[in-house]
Design a protein around this nucleic acid. Structure first.
Length: 877
RNA sequence: GCCGAGGUGGUGGAACUGGCAGACACAAGGGACUUAAAAUCCCUUGGCUCUUUUGAGCCGUGCGGGUUCAAGUCCCGCCCUCGGCACCA
């Protein structure tokens, strides 16, 4: 029979709520610990088993730190603006305000049912006017610092979603949300100058304790590259084409130039003869979606403009082409092409028969571009030469010369672009901006914030035609909201809204002082609580959210709102949770089984191209043969064995509510942590849940006699014996160390080992069990509280001091030493600890062993290695 | 293609700084209890070979080499899986 988890979990959740057990006060003298989860989008489908993974990890740390005497800030809130909430509202035909509220209620209830120790009085919600007032306030500060501007820029326009998207929201030419096609079109939009902070965002990665892979992703995203800008005069026209290059050392090898189709000089440079083909090409390029441009990447296309440029280093006349392999958005939108030493230029030159000239020795340019190291050749004019130099030296020398002559200069370039900050959506923060009929931009005064989102019946975006100017939903807002008259002048409100990231850029600050209506955050509280000591969330936010939040934080730092350079000191990503491992058999149309290696990625037969059907198998229908799983009754047939991402369509989604209902919150928490290391991707297993549930039952029966529901007869007030103390103190040490390392799976394994041992004891000293319950409590708080209470305590264990281990119980007085002969374990011996610690004694004793004597008989001992307290290795032949 | 992480029993995983590979759990098998089942408790469980038994030997951490008394762990080369980026000049 299972322990009464439903009853006790409800009981303790009520207790914590009623007694405000986890309410955090600003005790400035106490050491603080700020542990934060990435707050969720309260989607319509409710909590997913992925959510409680990170949340349980942080909850364990939070509960542990409290017991360690820290003042812990552990809050939760809702990132409720933006596409997911709005799409859901549209699907269900209900206003987003209502669906959002409903979704939040559901999420809150679900989170509470798992027993997380959040201070719910600090809950924040990005869609609350009291919250977004400060989001708008930050926008005003950005504007005042010149970091927000309106610009007509080519944007990622997604007609299906009726909005523009940031580059990061576009994956391979399709929208991250919904996978709709995305097109480029110019639009007047708000931009944030994140590029101004590029260097600091890069450098300050040094200051934080983050996964190296995440730092690397951010570095790549920022994409700093050093090189030079060089001006190429256009032949016959008084214009220059500016290019950016990281390889100024190859300047003598530039045999042609390429402009992006959108480059402003294209029209001027194109000669009459080529005008038509260039126009056609430009049109074709503009009609391609980003998706098509990426897909056609293998084949480079371009057209000649008829124009020529002069290479400033050798006065050579080189042709100017237009090609879409040059992007208008990177560098200057134009390149000097050095086909001998750049793969893309090489491919293009081959296709269009353009000259290829070697300027770096070391490769074979008749076969392929040589991009490696080498010595510069063929690179001299009357004034100077870089021949014979290594590339790095040559770069320096030629850049100096270019600067002296005024042809170019040193330049650092970034892949990072300014942040497109407008969305043509309803469900977002309105901008605190008024636009006069003459185009004057006027900020809403800070004391008039927030600018409320007007209530609207029809909030749907209007998918528009491509050439039509998109009309944001707010253009249909009531007139009295849309228009404001100040000193007789009429202004229209900005009708775009902010993107989803806005609210999540600074929520960690609001948790510190959530009800302050005078300030975003009180400076004293901010100084006490910041930075966030531990931040846990998924890798999917490695660039987007984390880079934006760092940017805003640095701006707030510059204007004195925050005191730390970086917001998140330590960052950990929890791994993804996949569905249960599935064994799939493929069948062709005649129902014959098809071995898995014959199945293509498209799910069709690789040879016949026939579409195949999938059949799910149970575990006992398959068996392992070598590397693969095969059909038991026909081992010729290889079966596919893998776990898939949870998805509704696959039907392998696990709902945390069901686990809580069936096994209890403590089992859910424990299982999520026991599955494997927090950071790893893992697959779900119901059997595994049952396993940890069984463990909790064993814990229960350790203390409670099931028949009588009274304390177990074996419980005693006696002093624990040595064996019991050792088992306990080993567990204290292991669990403590493992929580510090966030190695929760092994901490749980140690607690299981302890319980297994305790079951074998003749008595169960209460003292030992009480200490054990304290160790268990961060992981399985409900059962721990209940048993703690039954052992005679009248208040929560949440603030009991964390147990300390005593080294003296860990020392074994007798030690087992391994004897190896030629590196192989041949024997063992048990010695008193002091003897095992002495090399000489160890060696002597080992050689005396009968077993050893036999084995080394007739051999010469070459060497004896002794590791005190561990092993002896005798090398003999 | 580039960057990053990883590859250990039937499964999830453990192994500190090079020192007994497989902790803990799942599954499987056997036994106890039970009229029976569930639950619970106990035992076995990496592979192969030899042995009547006690037991003994060999192999084994993706593959191939190397360093070392000793390698899952360090070095070199390769293969595969997952995640990210992708014409970035």
């Amino acid at each position: 029979m299972a322990y009464p988890f439903r009853k006790i979990e409800q009981k303790w959740q009520k207790y914590w709520e009623k007694n405000k057990t986890f309410k955090t006060e600003d005790n400035f003298e106490q050491p603080k610990y700020y542990v934060l989860d990435m707050f969720p989008y309260p989607s319509g489908s409710g909590l997913h088993v992925g959510h409680p993974e990170g949340y349980t990890a942080t909850d364990i740390v939070a509960r542990y730190k409290r017991m360690k005497g820290f003042n812990v800030l552990h809050p939760m809130g809702w990132d409720a603006f933006g596409l997911p909430a709005e799409q859901y509202a549209i699907e269900t035909g209900t206003h987003p305000r209502i669906t959002t509220e409903r979704n939040i209620d559901r999420f809150r209830k679900q989170l509470k049912s798992i027993g997380f120790s959040y201070d719910w009085d600090r809950e924040v919600n990005t869609t609350d006017p009291k919250y977004y007032k400060w989001t708008q306030w930050i926008f005003i500060q950005l504007y005042k610092k010149g970091l927000a501007y309106l610009a007509e820029v080519p944007v990622n326009w997604c007609p299906a979603l009726g909005t523009v998207l940031a580059d990061e929201e576009v994956i391979n030419g399709r929208s991250e949300r919904g996978n709709h096609p995305v097109y480029r079109r110019p639009l007047k939009q708000w931009m944030l100058k994140i590029t101004e902070y590029a260097d600091r965002l890069l450098e300050d990665l040094e200051l934080v304790d983050w996964p190296e892979s995440t730092k690397e992703m951010q570095r790549n995203w920022i994409g700093r590259s050093e090189g030079a800008e060089v001006d190429f005069p256009v032949y016959g026209i008084d214009e220059k084409i500016r290019v950016f290059t990281t390889r100024p050392d190859t300047l003598f090898g530039a045999t042609y130039m390429v402009l992006a189709p959108e480059h402003p000089l294209v029209d001027m440079i194109t000669t009459a003869e080529y005008r038509q083909q260039v126009k056609d090409y430009q049109l074709k390029a503009s009609q391609k979606s980003d998706l098509e441009r990426t897909e056609l990447q293998k084949d480079k296309t371009g057209v000649f403009t008829g124009g020529y440029a002069i290479n400033p280093v050798n006065n050579e006349k080189i042709p100017i082409w237009v090609a879409d392999y040059v992007l208008i958005s990177y560098g200057t939108g134009a390149i000097m092409a050095v086909p001998a030493h750049d793969e893309r230029d090489y491919e293009f030159a081959q296709k269009y028969n353009l000259p290829i000239r070697e300027v770096i020795s070391g490769g074979d340019i008749s076969k392929e571009a040589y991009t490696g190291e080498g010595i510069v050749v063929n690179s001299a004019n009357e004034e100077f030469s870089i021949n014979g130099l290594q590339a790095s030296k040559a770069k320096e020398k030629i850049t100096e010369w270019l600067e002296k002559k005024g042809f170019g200069k040193r330049k650092v370039n970034y892949k990072l672009r300014d942040w497109l900050f407008s969305r043509q959506r309803y469900w977002g923060e309105p901008f605190p901006v008024l636009i006069g009929e003459d185009g004057e931009i006027r900020l809403v005064p800070e004391n008039e914030l927030p600018v409320d989102l007007p209530p609207m019946e029809d909030f749907k975006p209007r998918p528009s035609n491509e050439d039509e100017e998109p009309q944001p939903p707010l253009s249909r807002a009531p007139e009295e909201w849309k228009y404001v008259t100040i000193n007789g002048k009429r202004y229209r409100r900005e009708l775009n809204t902010m993107p989803q990231w806005a609210g999540s850029c600074w929520y960690y600050l609001r948790f510190i002082d959530p009800h302050n209506d005078q300030k975003l955050v009180d400076p004293e509280k901010e100084k006490y609580w910041m930075p966030v000591d531990l931040y846990v969330g998924g890798t999917e936010h490695a660039v987007l959210h984390l880079l934006y939040a760092r940017f805003w934080h640095k701006v707030l730092y510059d204007i004195g709102v925050v005191s730390t350079k970086e917001p998140f000191q330590k960052l950990v990503h929890q791994g993804m949770i996949l569905g249960e491992t599935e064994y799939t058999l493929y069948l062709d149309e005649q129902k014959n089984p098809v071995s898995a290696e014959l199945v293509g990625k498209d799910g069709k037969h690789v040879k016949s191209g026939q579409p195949l059907n999938r059949k799910k198998l149970t575990e006992d229908e398959v068996t392992k043969q070598g590397e693969v799983f095969v059909l038991k009754e026909n081992p010729q047939i290889v079966v596919e064995a893998r776990a898939y991402k949870m998805s509704k369509s696959r039907g392998n989604v696990i709902n945390p509510d069901e686990i809580v209902e069936q096994f209890g919150a403590d089992s859910l928490r424990l299982y999520e942590m026991f599955m494997g290391p927090l950071k790893d991707t893992k697959s779900w297993s119901m059997k595994g849940v049952e396993g940890v549930h069984r463990f909790l039952n064993r814990v229960w029966r350790l203390v409670v006699d099931e028949e009588s529901d009274q304390l177990h007869q074996l419980l005693t007030d006696d002093e624990p014996n040595e064996e019991q103390l050792r088992a306990l103190h080993e567990t204290i040490k292991k669990v403590t160390d493992d929580i510090e390392e966030m190695a929760f799976n092994t901490a749980i394994a140690q607690m299981m080992t302890f319980v297994n041992a305790a079951y074998k004891w003749e008595n169960r000293p209460k003292k030992v069990l009480e200490t054990f319950l304290l160790l268990l409590s961060p992981f399985a708080p409900h059962i721990a509280e209940e048993l703690w209470q039954r052992l005679g305590h009248d208040k929560t264990l949440a603030y009991e001091p964390w147990p300390e281990y005593d080294e003296k119980y860990l020392v074994q007085d007798r030690v087992e030493v391994v004897i190896q002969i030629n590196g192989k374990v041949r024997s063992k011996m048990v010695l008193p600890a002091n003897e095992a610690a002495d090399r000489n004694v160890l060696q002597e004793k080992a050689l005396q062993l009968e077993d050893v004597q036999k084995r080394i008989e007739g051999k010469t001992i070459r060497k004896v290695i002794c590791v005190p307290g561990k092993l002896v290795n005798i090398v003999a032949n």
